[in-house]
Amino acid sequence: MTRATAGARAAPALLGLLGLAVFALVFEVAPRLGVVPADYAPPTSRVLAAAGEQVGRPAFWAALADTLLTWGTGLGIAVVAGVGAGVLIGAVPFLRAATATTVEFLRPIPSVALIPLVIVLYGSTIRSTVVLVVYAAFWQVLVQVLYGVADLDPVARDTARSYRLGRRLQLRYLLWPTALPYVLTGIRLAAAVALILAVTGELVIGSPGLGKEIDLAQQGGAVPAVYALILVTGLLGVLANVGLRVLERHVLAWHPSSRREVTPS
């Protein structure tokens, strides 16, 4: 029994690796057996070889840097604006009531609807894509911050009031710690959305970055390179997600509501 449980603890990670290996194997074997056309779905080994080639190209690194720049800039602006607006709106009941319908209306507008607009306004530049990223990521942050501020414990607020804490102290010691977990959740959600929009913008608008490389590779008929680049964008997403989760756990180690996440909105 002891052996079984010790094994059971190591097993999930191994099973997970096995899952990835089986996936890779299926995509290695299926094209070779002709189950899927090898021209359009190259075997895993060729995709990995293409990824190796990409790593050797300076243009790949430039594209990666551009994507990271677009993503980082857009996410940064969205986080600053989202947190600022969220704390302000959330803390002032009048603003909250007055902006509710506007937020409800603007938030579901798909940011890709703005693609033609930013093309005519800014052309095929990083700036165009950053606008898309900011629009998409901003709402994720804002909404989470609004939840966070609304989650303020009424007893804690009454305590602060009865001890006559000033507005600034309340903000620093009451509002911010309450909202922090939500802010971090918002950033994590926003990061995922921002990456989607960054790559999408590059793909459709043609601003420099991995998305554009995918488009170029596809038009050049370099199918393994298309898959290799998609692999890279996926890895980027995984890294961002894992990194932000670690950060969240680190920053919130002290927080009682550490593992809370808003499920329905």
Partner: peptide, 28 residues
């Protein structure tokens, strides 16, 4: 067990920005 087997794979597939799959699906 199924969960442990598939979790990392699903995390990866989820992280791929869906629009980049459009060119691939067009190929296929």
């Amino acid at each position: 067990h199924v969960r442990a087997f598939l979790e990392p794979l699903l995390e990866f597939l989820r992280a791929i920005p869906p629009p980049v799959l459009v060119p691939v699906f067009i190929l296929l």
